[in-house]
Design a protein around this nucleic acid. Structure first.
Lengths: 98, 98
DNA sequence: GATCTGACTTTCCAATATGGAAAGAGAACC
DNA sequence: GGTTCTCTTTCCATATTGGAAAGTCAGATC
């Protein structure tokens, strides 16, 4: 009988939620690996990352690897907290459903 | 390290997720009460209900009350199962986050 | 039984979001 | 300098979401 739940509109969209979840499992992840994992194009991942960066949820670490510039995605403490809060809100539903 | 999670696109949108959750708590709910609870207009609720009906997640029961035709929203067994499954998928994230 | 009213539905229409392709940009390598 | 790899940004097409307004329909009112 709670009122309306508060969702985090930055993390709620499926791709971003999945990305946040994936990043929460590891210290960092390569751009290309995340793109393949999510099954989206470069441009789409890049745009979602921009949103998450703007919210302070993700940090990009750029460094060379194998002679090429690569980008690693890192979930910030803030991003981790936001994911946690979002999932907790959803767990309330779980409790309701039983 | 799971692959991409499977979300139910019918219930994932915030309004519908909240509606499904609200309906899971009660046997039924009046249209007007649901509209106020979600904070949306008549038309918006009506359209979301159409989606959920089409998916077989919600059933509308129309009957007179106080001389006027009223509509009660009921979450079907299928709708309840779908909500449960959706929440379970999200609980996997919860487990990950800890 | 014609009209009115309340309770939704449907039809506009505007704003936003999402996705991919293609063009850009920067770094390293030749 | 030119090429390649790795993202970014721009462009565009489609889908989603929301409200207002018009439409529908059953029951009330006269």
């Amino acid at each position: 009988m709670t009122s309306v739940l508060q969702f985090d509109s930055v993390i709620h969209p499926p791709v971003r939620l999945q990305l946040a979840a994936a990043l929460s499992e590891v210290n960092d992840m390569e751009f290309g690996r995340a793109r393949d994992l999510l099954g989206v194009s470069d441009s789409v991942l890049s745009k979602h990352l921009a949103q998450m960066q703007e919210a302070g949820y993700v940090r990009l670490r750029k460094a060379p690897l194998g002679g090429r510039q690569r980008t690693w995605l890192v979930l910030t403490a803030q991003g981790r907290a936001a994911l946690k809060a979002h999932v907790r809100a959803l767990q309330d539903l779980a409790g309701i459903v039983g």
